[in-house]
Design a protein around this nucleic acid. Structure first.
Lengths: 212, 212
DNA sequence: GTCTATATACCGATAGAC
DNA sequence: GTCTATCGGTATATAGAC
């Protein structure tokens, strides 16, 4: 049907705009980004952009929410595929890292939103994030029940793994400037998944019950 | 001497401006902040502000650099006061937390600068940050030498502790919105130093050599 | 649905009087 | 050193023709 095709195309345009918005907001921040640049990168006219979405703040909220949903879906799948608490705990930041691999602007956008204090986060996005945190909490509780983990604060543990990963993903962009100042190589591969594993390895052996 | 008094006062005004700049940039980001608001909060006229400092970008760089120097000094003192690798490793994020206690805008400003990719970070600020990272590296190396730590990547470990702490400090501002969505309390005290200790406790037991 | 042109507002930066 | 007034540039958002 023609109506369906039109609707489909309209959705595509909207998706392209939101994708471009994510990119530009990540690079320049909310105040630094311009709607002109977002429209240009989405390949649409600025008036067209306003026809498809609301104002700049709504655009930002939509970009963040879209990425939060993506993360939540990726983490959910990764956890479902993993067997056992250790593998599941490893899978959570790894899913973040994989999502960042597909969309390099993702950690930057997340960090910017966290720095903004969540002012533009709609309730739906908060619920998605809470869902991810619940996955960590469930994994930790399962591990505690079967004796492989000691009891730790799930809030601290989750933010430690995920927050550090988001921070690192951004910090890596500075690493060349540190090259001559440090007595050790600064994250040579630029590979976020490897960093994630290294980090979880440290945290896991702290969480695991010592076999006496 | 009058000249000295004038110079002194001039330095004070400049310091007040940079302090206000740190606050406003942290709250609103580089693009969202206005020079008018910075001047207002510093209690000076906007023309006066431009008389004492350069343009907006220099102001941002000065605010970030000033806080990076403060952190480096605080960490240096804290490490010097602590005996043994475990105590020293605990002292590093704790010094960050203490600095954030005195200046609540500090973690927000740091996160914003990291998200901005360090575009406004002068070489002097990079050197300060590298100094802090070297303290972590030295502490880890000392611990490895005396047998209390196993060998871990100092880059990952440092960013894991400090990055997670900066991320959490910002995330705490959202915690009320998660209250009804999580099956566990979200960082009840709001006390960053307690969070820092909880985090280091997890990391430390992962880093410590298991006594067989 | 698409685009041009523009209204409106704000902000960074400075000129110039005192 | 201090302040008022203002210039010039730019950004959001929309009106209105097609």
């Amino acid at each position: 049907m023609r109506a369906d095709r039109v609707t489909q195309r309209s959705t595509d345009v909207r998706a392209r705009i939101i994708e471009a918005a994510g990119e530009v907001f990540a690079e320049s921040g909310f105040g630094g980004a311009t709607v002109d640049e977002i429209a240009r990168r989405a390949g649409v006219n600025k008036a067209m952009l306003y026809y498809h979405v609301g104002d700049k703040a709504e655009l930002f909220a939509a970009a963040v929410t879209s990425n939060v949903q993506r993360i939540r879906a990726a983490v959910e799948t990764a956890v479902a595929r993993s067997r056992g608490p250790r593998a599941r705990l490893r899978a959570i930041p790894r899913a973040f890292a994989a999502a960042a691999g597909e969309r390099p602007y993702l950690p930057q956008l997340m960090l910017r939103e966290i720095a903004a204090g969540g002012a533009n986060l709609p309730g739906a996005a908060i619920a998605e994030i809470a869902g991810v945190m619940r996955l960590t909490a469930t994994t930790l509780a399962d591990g505690a029940r079967d004796g492989s983990f000691r009891r730790v604060n799930p809030f601290v543990t989750h933010l430690m793994l995920v927050g550090a990963l988001m921070f690192m993903a951004n910090a890596l962009r500075l690493k060349e400037r540190f090259a001559n100042l440090l007595p050790f190589p600064a994250g040579q591969p630029g590979d976020l998944e490897a960093l994630s594993d290294a980090m979880v390895a440290i945290a896991l052996d702290g969480i695991a019950v010592k076999k006496a």
